[in-house]
Nucleic acid binder design. Structure first.
Length: 464
RNA sequence: GGCCACGUGGCGGAGUGGUUACGCAGCGGACUGCAAAUCCGCGUACGGGGGUUCGAUUCCCUCCGUGGCCUCCA
């Protein structure tokens, strides 16, 4: 069994937000490693910040598959397709359509865009990609259980989770309840028994998406924000599973509330054993926001860069650190990737070099892994580098196509270049350096860079 | 206001209680008619102030700065 002592594989260690410590990863069942990652709410084009968890947890997925076997890891990443932001966008975008039809258009189109983006980023498909609207039944079941157990109550056709009913609420975000209440800046809905209580289910007005409500509520309703992840992880991974991931901003309230719902519904001590959170992303040193005008979608970036460059740029920073997304960084990433592909042996199997794997096993230390890849390039590790690149999901084709497309169009054809080179070789033979340099400069003006090789030949390539 | 992160050399970015990160840029050398490319080599660092310690960039306190969460958010 991979991972056991003596197998030669390093131990997988992961930083756990629950304990705030890096700990050895021990799956509940090594034959069935289970991971859930919060996917997008499909109301708008995904931005580069959305890409971070996708890329990071794709890498973790690859590492886990390597350690435990591809058939022994189950990765679930959901699509949240019921949400008031979706409703608002749909009403704005398609004011003449019935709301439900407008919503279907928004979610369908956004999900398709998201999948296109991820395709270009080269991430693997999760094993299951459930949609929230396909799991309304599980949500109702969870809510019924919570009401029956006294962890939730009905008020004005809403169902609310009773936070005080859970003594250790707040363990993930480490927020003592009294402090949260003291710092609360929101108006508390009058039907809440406690300011911290959150919505599990709410009534829908006519025209809004609605489903039969739980807990004896008459009007149709729709789920609150957090219940869908409890329902989908339960449906596909069970009551308790190994890893739950997402962006650091989801720690509170989203993940805290997921934990509350799932643990109280199942009377379980844990929902997931390991909670992992990727850090935030800034753009050119500033917070990304629509008002600042620096809101960068994945689609925008893919217009200028191959997906692999975006991937590498994402992984140059450790996943828990903040990352500053810059054009300069992208240029450096592109150059690094080009060097690797130029050096790597092309026919290698997709498998990580041991030193790279060791770095990745240590809480996805990608900067260390990248350093090890540079070492492979420099020494007798060209085949291992190729295998590592393939393991990480990098393929040379798109980068080469991008590089070719990016080079300025040559206004001179290859035969003419060769003729000029021959001319220059003749000039050099005659020690006519002025003529030689003139030809070289003229060609450079035309976008052709000459290289005088040690064997006396001269070759050319498009100037960068 | 409350809570939580982060602050490493020109830039990006790991890591560690005492010894090389790594990459980019820069500098020097080799090669070259001169370059380019390539190869070899080199440098500068751990936000400020206290404390613990034989010794701290690494632990503790504090201050400053940046960012995040507390409301939708990856």
């Amino acid at each position: 069994m991979p991972g056991e002592v003596g197998s030669g594989l390093p131990e997988v260690k992961l930083y756990n937000t629950l304990t705030r410590v890096k700990e050895p990863f021990a799956p509940i069942d090594p034959a069935r490693v289970r991971m859930y990652v919060c996917g997008p709410t499909v109301y708008d084009l995904a931005h580069i910040g959305n890409a971070r968890p996708v890329v990071v947890f794709d890498l973790l997925y690859r590492v886990l598959r390597h350690f435990y076997g591809a058939d022994h890891v189950k990765y679930v990443r959901n699509i949240t397709d019921v949400d008031d932001k979706i409703n608002a966008r749909a009403a704005r975008e398609f004011p003449d359509l019935p709301l439900n039809e407008a919503i279907a258009r928004v979610t369908f189109a956004t999900e398709a865009q998201f999948h296109d983006d991820l395709e270009a980023l080269g991430v693997l498909h999760p094993d299951v990609e459930p949609r929230a609207t396909e799991h309304i039944g599980e949500m109702r079941t969870l809510i019924e259980r919570l009401v029956a157990a006294g962890h939730a109550y009905v008020a004005e056709d809403h169902v609310l989770f009773s936070v005080p009913s859970m003594p250790d609420y707040g363990a993930l975000s480490r927020r003592p309840l009294d402090e949260m209440i003291a710092g609360a800046r929101v108006d508390v809905a009058p039907y809440k028994r406690d300011a911290m209580d959150f919505v599990l289910w709410k009534p829908s007005s006519p025209g809004e998406p609605g489903w039969p409500s739980p807990a004896g509520i008459g009007p149709l309703g729709r789920p609150g924000w957090h219940i869908e992840c409890s329902a989908m992880s339960w449906a596909h991974l069970g009551e308790t599973f190994d890893i739950h991931g997402g962006g650091i901003d989801l720690i509170f309230p989203h993940h805290e509330n997921e934990i509350a719902q799932s643990r109280c519904a199942f009377h379980a001590g844990v929902m997931a054993n390991v909670w992992m959170h990727n850090g935030f992303l800034q753009v050119e040193g500033e917070k990304m926001s629509k008002s600042l005008g620096n809101f960068v979608t994945i689609r925008d970036l893919l217009a200028d860069w191959p997906g692999d460059v975006l991937r590498l740029n994402m992984l140059r920073t450790h996943y828990r650190q903040p990352i500053d997304w810059t054009v300069k960084g992208l240029e450096e990433s592109a150059r690094t990737l080009e060097q690797w592909f130029d050096a790597a042996a092309p026919d290698a199997y997709p498998r990580p070099a041991p030193a790279v794997l060791e770095a990745l096993a240590d809480d996805l230390n990608t900067p260390k892994a990248i350093a090890e890849m540079h070492a492979l390039k420099d020494h007798a590790g060209k085949k291992a580098l190729g295998g590592t690149l393939a393991f990480l999901g990098f393929a040379p084709g798109p980068l080469r196509a991008w590089r070719d497309a990016r080079a300025p169009a040559l206004t001179i054809d290859a035969a003419a270049i060769e003729a000029r080179i021959a001319e220059r070789i003749e000039a050099r033979r005659n020690r006519d350096w002025a003529a030689s340099d003139r030809i070289r400069n003229e060609l450079l003006e035309l976008g052709v860079a000459l290289k005088d090789n040690k064997d006396g030949t001269t070759t050319w390539e498009p100037a960068r």
